[in-house]
Design a protein around this nucleic acid. Sequence first.
DNA 1: GAATTAATCAATGCATACATTATTTCGATC
DNA 2: GATCGAAATAATGTATGCATTGATTAATTC
Lengths: 232, 232
Amino acid sequence: MTAASADAAAPDAKPLSQTQRAIALLREMVISNKLPPGSNHLEIELAALLGMSRTPIREAAIVLEGQGLVEVKPRHGVRILPIAPADMEEIYSILTELESLAAYNLANTRPGDVELSELRQHIDEMDSALAADDRHRWARADDEFHRSLVRLAGNRRLETVVTTYSDQAHRARLLTLFMRPTPSASNDDHRRLVDAIAAGDAEAARAIHRAHRIDAKNMMLKLIAAHGFSSV
Amino acid sequence: MTAASADAAAPDAKPLSQTQRAIALLREMVISNKLPPGSNHLEIELAALLGMSRTPIREAAIVLEGQGLVEVKPRHGVRILPIAPADMEEIYSILTELESLAAYNLANTRPGDVELSELRQHIDEMDSALAADDRHRWARADDEFHRSLVRLAGNRRLETVVTTYSDQAHRARLLTLFMRPTPSASNDDHRRLVDAIAAGDAEAARAIHRAHRIDAKNMMLKLIAAHGFSSV
DNA sequence: GAATTAATCAATGCATACATTATTTCGATC
DNA sequence: GATCGAAATAATGTATGCATTGATTAATTC
């Protein structure tokens, strides 16, 4: 352990500014639904909550507003944006298109065993989580799989956009996680996708992933329509 | 004219906060290359330049950083991000995909004459600008055409992302505007695209637009490769 | 003369103060 | 009792001050 720090794995973790802490903490609270969608929070309250002054809170709010998670309403504080079915429709459209592009591009790069096994590890983890009937773990692995897919495609901006909209969708996915049927069929798609990527068949990779995402979107929208939505 | 205001078209234009002014002014200066790519600007200098304190400058810098136009470097002020060929590659990939999606979706909505004529007006304006050999006017109309296309598709988030990356690409387009051949063939693509949309042929609309964007990207990259890039 | 270290300088990160302005409350009038 | 208006309240937008810390310059040693 280094002399200066006792927490992270990085040998010389910089002190991390208050603004960065505020961003990380608020983001986590939003996407995990700890701050309920539709709720308002005054800057002073958030400042007190996180033990800092209004300045870093404001800066964090601006960042999170840019990421579509909150809205700064002049006299009502920071409003946690709700996610309506129409929003999910928008988000999934974009994710479908961009992740499919990632799959296409990745297949064209002819990735090596390192990259492919990274993807396959996440798939195995999903299977394992399913076997243990641990949906949270499954969801995390699913997330990681999609994140890896996009990262390996090598377009940093693509990564950024996909992360932004995945974050927005995250809360809705949490809500439907236990409403949906067992997501075992999903892994068949994943395996076929990785096989197509390994074979360098870019068109197939794109088609498989697009179909996968469209299925996911339809299921999500159906669940939301059936169960309603707590958002305001 | 209203009693309170003497400038805008809106009857009751709110005073517009300093932060909002800073965002608008800095964004314009960045995407028009008035602030050279790669240059650094201390918060105090920008504050003096725009006649305000550091606070709104900081907030604006955060917003523009989120839009990929600048980078806040702790001791060196705000750095205007340069655009390298690799960045253009990333940006055009994303724009190609998302605008093609917009074309696809718009075609599926079976837009009425109002929408279609909006698109066609921009095409006519491009023709007119070309006839007058006014490339700046052409570029503006081309921009408007693409912006309309995406807006009419009706996905607000899609609009946001496309605007973000169009802004990033804007400076490079300015640089190559006078290097490229006369962009008259481009309008053939636009007309075929609108026809496909009018006919409700979503697949054709997507294919036409994708090809259009890929052509544009290849030309841009070739120009940049040939001419080099002033970016640092 | 080069390199290493100490001292100076400067820009930022953050807290705080204050003016502005939307909201709310209280009172008065109908 | 309800509605309108005015005063009070509260939250923000912005400016400013200060401590921190990175950068830069000077100085000293080899």
